[in-house]
């Protein structure tokens, strides 16, 4: 089995184990650490800047959006949390999804909470998503649904979704960025350009020629721009050319390239033009009309590119 295949099988197995938690309890007979009380309501309202008079005075109710706050474990930990939920989080931690962020909260308020109410709650693991890639990283969404009771009555429901994820874009400390030189981009090779890259492998720069009207064309295209014929053969470039135009890249720096460098439009002796790099002269010595000659640059194990070297003299 390939490395990719092994990883895919592991992912399927992880998802099977994650899905097994669906329907299992997340919290059983949880009990709020404090009864609904005026100080916590006041602290909440101060933080939110909420001056609604409904939340103060002898007839005060708690802000309905505080629903979840009453059920929070705080620094001393959760009460009533099920072993299933802890196991689910541990399984995700083990899969590298060590970070957590809340993404959705859906609450329904059936009766107001008032100071003195004792809050209890039960929750179920509703669903665990397949692996998702987000801006933050790759992970799984876990959705729970909680029923919140006060004085024996259902006071509200609370559906909550978190993303347990492996943070993206963090380099292992043993591999600083500078140690691994990014690869140059790979060419896109398809049925329209295959012949060109086959030629490069044999150190031939091939130009397409329309067999109907003999017009040369470059870069490679499926049909002739002059007569629309789809039929073609190739001619091998002699390798001689001149710089038709150029730019010097300073910014932005792309990975795998070290600016400043010259990007030239080279006119081949056959008349077509191609974009390439100029070797053998500093970037600031490239000039329009500079005579150049084709050579092949071995970039790495799997990539060889046609470039042009300034002709001496």
């Amino acid at each position: 089995m390939t490395v990719d295949g092994t990883a895919a099988a592991a992912e399927v197995e992880l998802l099977r184990r994650l899905r097994a938690f669906e329907g299992r309890p997340a919290a059983i007979a949880g009990r709020a650490k404090d009864p609904v009380n005026e100080p916590m309501i006041r602290h909440w309202c101060e933080a939110m800047g909420d001056t609604n008079p409904a939340y103060t005075g002898p007839e005060a109710i708690a802000p309905p959006t505080m629903l979840q706050a009453w059920t929070m474990g705080g620094l001393s930990g959760h009460t009533g949390r099920s072993t299933a939920y802890d196991e689910l989080l541990a399984l995700l931690d083990g899969a590298g999804c060590t970070s957590v962020v809340a993404t959705d909260c859906e609450q329904e308020y059936l009766r107001p909470l008032r100071p003195g109410d004792t809050v209890t709650f039960d929750a179920v693991i509703e669903s665990v998503s397949p692996r998702k890639t987000t801006k933050l990283g790759t992970g799984h969404f876990v959705t729970t649904r909680m029923d919140v009771h006060a004085g024996g009555e259902l006071a509200g429901t609370h559906r909550f979704r978190i993303l347990k994820y492996a943070p993206a874009a963090r380099r292992p400390p043993s591999q600083p960025e500078s140690a691994v030189k990014p690869q140059r981009p790979r060419p896109v090779i398809n049925r329209d350009t295959q012949g060109f890259w086959d030629g490069i492998r044999e150190h031939k720069l091939l130009i397409q020629r329309c067999t109907a009207c003999a017009t040369l064309r470059f870069p490679w295209l499926p049909g002739c721009n002059a007569c629309s014929s789809p039929d073609w053969d190739t001619v091998e470039a002699s390798g001689a050319g001149t710089v038709f135009s150029y730019v010097v890249m300073h910014h932005p720096p792309f990975p795998a390239f070290d600016p400043p460098y010259a990007v030239a439009l080279v006119e081949l002796a056959e008349g077509v033009r191609m974009i390439s790099n100029i070797a053998g002269v500093p970037y600031d010595k490239v000039r329009i009309g500079l005579p150049v000659r084709l050579e092949f640059l071995r970039v790495d194990d799997t990539l060889e590119l046609p470039v042009f070297r300034a002709e001496a003299g």
Partner: peptide, 14 residues
């Protein structure tokens, strides 16, 4: 998210 939730509630009742 709880603060966001509280602010959304406040926005409506304000």
């Amino acid at each position: 998210i709880l603060t966001t939730n509280g602010l959304v509630g406040r926005y409506i009742t304000d």
